[in-house]
Amino acid sequence: MVKLGVKDLSISYAGERVLEGVNFDIQEHEIFGIIGPANAGKTSFLKAINRMDMFNTEMTVDGEIRFNNVDVSKIRNVYGLRRRIGVVFPLPVGLPLSIYDNVALAPRLGGQKDKAELDIIVERCLTRAALWDEVKDRLDSLGSMLSGGQQQRLTIARALSQDPEMLMLDEFSIAVDPVTTMRIEDVLKELRSEVTIILVTNLVQQARRLADRTAFFLGGRCVEVGVTEDLFTGEVQDQRTRDYVEGRFG
């Protein structure tokens, strides 16, 4: 089943094109990788999906993005859409709330008030994000006081707390050490059975380890979409893809 359908998508900021010609479908329960150098339009793409363009008057999105076969540009309640989609930003954002409240925020926004239920959600999400053991004795301390790597796992726990149907990770490992990165990657592999994952990464090997299919964005265009392994074994449409995954530029 198609979770996210993208057709003729283009994005501009104040009239300047930053991304165009994006056409692909993301299947349910797949990990879909997006690789590409800086300024390729990867982050803008994610922003268009969960309608973060709404408060940015400069940003215009053309074309079509369908989530669960619903055109997101026609959605009236964007908050409902965003609650179905968890987002993890490149730099960790521990909100200046307690660790517990960080994770409980999204369920609370959704109306969950039952303390016992929240306790379960908090423990489950922190465990999944490989953070529970480190913080279980100090859930009351400030989330913004954790180390960078811990904050990033907190961010992932928070993204999971809303029970998303889709998870979008934007270069999540930039501020995380390699060991933690591996642990989070293991978590993502487990999540695949329940969640559709879009993994934007500047580490091509990370895409290779995790992604079922991968798209290559370059200079504001989607150059290539294919089964990840094909990209790495050289079965590509575009020479630039091969050069990029082999580390000849970017």
């Binding site: 969960n50 973060m52 408060f55 908050y79 409902g80 859409l81 965003r82 609650r83 179905r84 989609i85 968890g86 987002v87 930003f89 730099l91 954002v93 909100l95 200046p96 925020l105 999204a106 926004l109 959704g110 961010t155 928070r158 993204a159 809303q162």
Partner: peptide, 11 residues
């Protein structure tokens, strides 16, 4: 980024 994070959660 605090606002963005909260908005992305559907706040």
């Amino acid at each position: 980024r605090y606002r963005e994070a909260a908005e992305a959660m559907g706040a």
